[in-house]
Design a protein around this nucleic acid. Sequence first.
DNA 1: TCGCTGATTGTTGTATACAACGAATCATTT
DNA 2: AAATGATTCGTTGTATACAACAATCAGCGA
Lengths: 253, 253
Amino acid sequence: MTAAAADDKPRNAQTVKALLKLREMVLNGELPPGERVAELSIVDRLGVSRTPIRMALVRLEEEGLVDCLATGGFVVREFSDQDIADSIELRGTMEGMAARRAAERRPDRAELAEIRDCVGSLDALIRRRELSMDDFSDYIRLNDRFHSLLVDLAASAVLKRSIERILHLPFASPNAFVFVQSELPESREILSIAQEHHRSILEAIEHGEGGRAEALAREHSRITQRNLQIALSNQQQLDRIPGASLIRQRERA
Amino acid sequence: MTAAAADDKPRNAQTVKALLKLREMVLNGELPPGERVAELSIVDRLGVSRTPIRMALVRLEEEGLVDCLATGGFVVREFSDQDIADSIELRGTMEGMAARRAAERRPDRAELAEIRDCVGSLDALIRRRELSMDDFSDYIRLNDRFHSLLVDLAASAVLKRSIERILHLPFASPNAFVFVQSELPESREILSIAQEHHRSILEAIEHGEGGRAEALAREHSRITQRNLQIALSNQQQLDRIPGASLIRQRERA
DNA sequence: TCGCTGATTGTTGTATACAACGAATCATTT
DNA sequence: AAATGATTCGTTGTATACAACAATCAGCGA
């Protein structure tokens, strides 16, 4: 955590730069879905050679953000409403497994300290009178932390990898719709319900109740599903979620 | 299904060749786990240049068979017993989700035709007096087909992708331990139980019983877990499963 | 005007060249 | 002899050159 090695140049600096930038460009909509990603045009825009760009594209393809064309080259993928709902459901299922595994493992107090602290911080945050935009940003950070710690508690490298993979689809994130939700009148209630879920999941883990922990974690993901449905009914709000440009436009009457 | 284009050279022939060969070499144990994969040595052995090898290595890394070293280069990964069990459990969880989704979708007769046929063939196979090695090979083919059709019935591209990804770990396959099992005296009973699972999963889907379908699919995966435990208690048999060389040797007294 | 053909351009897949970094080796010193 | 420092070797990451293929566009003919 020291300030050492701030601009530590890794050996593969160009590749990670290309990967980060390309992912950003895809999520921005700067590279529209369905369009072929011309490697040379990226060379111009990023100032790195084709090789690292190619590597990054392969990784993005494995992540699921671009598709490998049979004729050669890559295309930015397009996602249907169903794809998004499926991603959220899959995350919920896997987090359910994580919660169950965590409960069955009977972690000791030391292992639970961090996530307890996280839930405590969330409690404090929710109790504030008014929730500013910054508060929502804090919520996102803490919420991310909770979900990440939950997966860690399952102590399964395989499961962790799989969950991290699905989270590469930005709209599968537990936070994908928080800012959409923040504009709803019932926003506070939704956050309270979510936090109640967090508390009971933790409680179930502490009590070693695997089945309950799994059911709760799944139920928790349905909040994201609800928020998705709300966003889907309002194009303006939908446009503000991460990776919005990747969503296939439904025909409108 | 015609005989057309048998040796159709795709554009990226070298890359797929490298990917296939490298995967084979890793699973063979030809490239021992923990050892750095020197690209130049692969160049000699495969007769393709470094570039396609590099691409293949990136893909293998995303598949989880090799790890990306911080210092640069790739290492063949090593898997603990727990990793294997976790992979099987994760597959079971995702197949459970697939079965539930399939049931909830209420597929019509036409959609169910293939999997019904598959279960029928399995029935016929199991009913034979004696099961030869070829019979077990047939079983593996049909079993693979059943699991694949089950995933297709869920009609979720996201889920399908995730399941296919976990199946890249060879010991996560539903068939990983069938040949080990084939040498057990109770082999036939295990196959009968598995087939009973297949039948009831299909039945639950036909009846639209999502919860039951999910529970059954999960239970079904526990057969693989049992077989894993059996294999783990007998090093000789363990060595015969696909990717055996990737399994970390436990210290023996 | 429409369709077909041929050339041209653009893009990818592959091979290779090059430079920087790390690891191992060997020599030197204490 | 052990430790330490310099040097050599090997390996990777990156850039670029080249060839094959696809797509596009112009021109020609009906």
